[in-house]
Design a protein around this nucleic acid. Structure first.
Lengths: 211, 211
DNA sequence: TAGATTGTTAATCGATTAACAATC
DNA sequence: TAGATTGTTAATCGATTAACAATC
């Protein structure tokens, strides 16, 4: 997709390495080998080294990787060294859960706007933020210069709110609605397929006559 | 992993085809071609045909696929033709959102037990179910013969509750905690990597100098 | 120095796509 | 019959793993 092809999978694993490095760092270790990282991530050591080398030469032969240095490097590469303002579309159950989800906060994703199309919800406060009518989303996002959006509306509303978010300047969308969003090129959509995952589980269990 | 290797990806896509078939069916069409399915799923027509053939010969050359027949077949193959009782571990924000998540209900996944280790929460009712102490999870799951579990606890609690669920007879786990669960062979774990996905988004936007 | 572990190249594996005979 | 579209085989592509020289 971009410059000299870094596999999407490698980028996703970068995030996993970062998480594991944090654990190792907190446990007081200063260096770590690719085998140790691989072991903890359930991967192959060669894959770990290959993934990391896409982004730079972080290791020392015979020694391994400096834990804190590598952790900081990955954080920076992923753009996670500064807070990232986020707009949330859909203030239903899932939306509200995401709003108070510690994992997002910990990683610096700060939800600064919430939109919904339900007049019942519009105007109410949630986590210190007023739920706004989704009609106003474009202008508010433009004003606040937010670039990342999360869609947690029902499928039926997802495409239309996506359009509005994009109109307001959103460049990346985390989409929880089970629908293939149509977006202009240059806009990045990452899908979270909750139901697909659970259905997969059902398939494997059924096949083994467990369900 | 199983019999004659059906790729995990194909299974996950089965779920996507099912969703799209439902839309096409509701729109009143009776047949559909692999190109039409591919178009809507953002895939290659050959891939659609290949995926489907792993599970049976559903098509008619020159005609395509019978929408309702294929939908029913996939539903059955995935074991989604009957209700599936589910145990939920972790009644925090995310857990409560999943509890009332319509997508799960629509697909027949019925949450029948909720566990938490917070004495504040234990005993309270949620969606008509009493939150139970996670200490009692094994026996309750055994009694209710539940085979599917969802873990929405913090990482720190995830492994220990997973052990208890498995002890009670859970065979498949949908895991929201950002941690690699260690489970005996025969137990299926499907991870939902919320933070990884959002961090991926951050990476791509940073690289393009958008964040 | 000897041992460990990196970065990198080559070999393997698996998944996607193209092409096409079969057939409705 | 002619046109459409399947199921399937072969070709391509990409990702994972193995192997090893370089080097701390």
């Amino acid at each position: 997709m971009e410059s000299y092809k870094i596999p999407k999978r490698s980028v996703e694993r970068l995030s996993i390495y970062k998480r594991i490095l944090k654990v190792i760092m907190d446990a007081g270790f200063t260096t770590v080998s690719s085998s140790e990282l691989a072991e903890r991530a359930g991967l192959n050591p060669a894959q770990v080294r290959k993934d990391l080398v896409y982004f730079g030469q972080f290791g020392t032969p015979g020694m391994g990787y400096q834990v804190s240095t590598l952790h900081r490097a990955i954080t920076r590469i992923m753009g996670l060294h500064k807070k990232i303002p986020v707009a949330l579309a859909g203030a239903g159950n899932l939306g509200q859960a995401l709003l108070s989800y510690q994992g997002f906060k910990d990683r610096g994703f700060i939800i600064e706007s919430i939109f919904d199309n339900d007049p019942e919800k519009v105007g109410k406060m949630k986590n210190g933020i007023k739920i706004r009518n989704e009609k106003n989303s474009s202008s508010e996002i433009k004003d606040k210069k937010i670039k990342v959006g999360i869609i947690s509306t029902p499928s039926s509303a997802a495409q239309s709110i996506a359009n509005k978010l994009i109109e307001g300047g959103i460049k990346g969308i985390l989409n929880f609605a089970p629908i293939e969003l149509k977006v202009p090129s240059g806009i990045i959509v990452v899908n979270v397929a909750l139901c697909e995952k659970l259905e997969m589980l059902s398939y494997y269990l059924s096949k083994r006559k467990i369900l």
